[in-house]
C-alpha cells in the first residue's frame, strides 16, 4: 500500500492506495497540512478485483467505515475516491462534534454557516468569501462543539463542480488546483487548496453568528426562516444528530436558539456576496 497521512482540523486520516497516483496528488494538494502520527480513520483505495489493478483500473472506496453499495470509480478519479472516502469516515464515524452538511467562513471571531442541498452553491460561496476578507473554515462539514457550541474548522480541499470551476479560476487564478476530473457521477469536479490562513489557523474556531440557506439560480431574495423549520432542516443536514442522542439535541437546540437564520436566493457570486455582507452587518 502506498500511504499518505493528513490532519484536517481535528480529524487525522491515513490513506492507503494500491496505486501511486492518487497518493501523489493528495501529497501535492495537502502539502501545507500537518502529517500526524496518530490517525482517527483509515481510508483504503483498492482494486475492485485483482485484475482491476492493471486492466481498466477500478477503485473501490474502502476504509474503517464503508457503505456496502458504494460504486467504484476509475483510477483517473482516484483523488475523488479518496476525498469521498474521507467524507464517509466523518459522516459515519465522527461523534466528537455535531456534524452538519454545511460550509462556513469566519470574520472577527464569529462564524457564518451556510447549508443547503447539493447545487445550492454553499461550497462555491464559502470559497469565494474565503478570498474576500473572510477566513474559510470548510465547504463540506461544519463541526459544532457540544461543550462550547462553537464551530470547529474542517478546511479540507474545496470541491468545485461544473460551472463553479471556471468561476473560481477567474476569481483566484493563483490558487492551487487539482487535476480536472471530468465525467464523475457528479459532473466535472476540480479540487482547490483552501487559502493559506484557512490551513494555518485550522485549530481555531469561532462562535456561530448567522445561518444562511442559499439557493442558486433564483432572483435575489431574502426570507426569514422560523426556528422550527431551521431545526428540522438541520436535523436532516446532520449525519450524526440521532447517534449523538441527548448531546446532539442540546447542541442543535442551542445553535438554533442563538443563531439568526435566513434563506437567500441569488443568481451570481457577486450578488450573493453583497447579500451576505448586508445581512452580516444587520444580524451578526
Amino acid at each position: 500500500m502506498h500511504e499518505f497521512r493528513v490532519q484536517v482540523g481535528p480529524a487525522a486520516f491515513r490513506i492507503g492506495s494500491a496505486w501511486r497516483a492518487p497518493i501523489d496528488q493528495l501529497a501535492h494538494l495537502y502539502r501545507d497540512y500537518p502529517q500526524p502520527d496518530f490517525t482517527d480513520f483509515t481510508v483504503r483505495l483498492e482494486p475492485t478485483t485483482w485484475l482491476r489493478r492493471w486492466l481498466r483500473p477500478s477503485v473501490a472506496i474502502g476504509g474503517d467505515y464503508m457503505l456496502p453499495d458504494a460504486a467504484p470509480l476509475p483510477l483517473a478519479q482516484g483523488l475523488l475516491a479518496a476525498e469521498m472516502a474521507m467524507n464517509l469516515q466523518m459522516a459515519l464515524g465522527w461523534r466528537r462534534h455535531l456534524l452538519l452538511h454545511a460550509s462556513a467562513v469566519e470574520r472577527d471571531g464569529r462564524v457564518l454557516v451556510m447549508t443547503g442541498q447539493s447545487g445550492s452553491g454553499k461550497s462555491t460561496l464559502s470559497a469565494l468569501l474565503g478570498s474576500e476578507g473572510w477566513r474559510f473554515l470548510g465547504d463540506e462539514f461544519v463541526l459544532l462543539d457540544p461543550v462550547t457550541g462553537n464551530v470547529v474548522p474542517f478546511p479540507r480541499l474545496i470541491s468545485l463542480k461544473n460551472e463553479a470551476i471556471a468561476a473560481m479560476q477567474s476569481a483566484q487564478p493563483d490558487a492551487r488546483f487539482g487535476p480536472l476530473l471530468a465525467g464523475t457521477p457528479k459532473g466535472d469536479i476540480r479540487h482547490v487548496v483552501p487559502p493559506a490562513d484557512a490551513i494555518a489557523q485550522m485549530g481555531q474556531g469561532g462562535a456561530p453568528a448567522l445561518l444562511l440557506f442559499p439557493r442558486y439560480g433564483y432572483p435575489g431574495a431574502v426570507r426569514e426562516v422560523a426556528p422550527g423549520e431551521t431545526f428540522m432542516r438541520l436535523t436532516q443536514a446532520s449525519t450524526n444528530y440521532v447517534a449523538l442522542g441527548e448531546a446532539g439535541f442540546i447542541t442543535l437546540t442551542r445553535f438554533v436558539k442563538s443563531v439568526p437564520s435566513r434563506a437567500i436566493d441569488y443568481q451570481s457570486g457577486d450578488e450573493a456576496i453583497a447579500l451576505v455582507e448586508k445581512l452580516w452587518e444587520r444580524l451578526a
Binding site: F38, D40, W94, R95, R96, A243, L244
Partner: peptide, 21 residues
C-alpha cells in the same frame, strides 16, 4: 491510553450506546 486514542474510544462508546438504544 494516549489522549488521541482515548478520544476514539469515547466515540466508540457513544456509538455503542446509540446502537443499544
Amino acid at each position: 491510553v494516549p489522549p488521541k486514542v482515548a478520544e476514539i474510544l469515547a466515540e466508540a462508546r457513544i456509538n455503542a450506546d446509540y446502537q443499544h438504544r
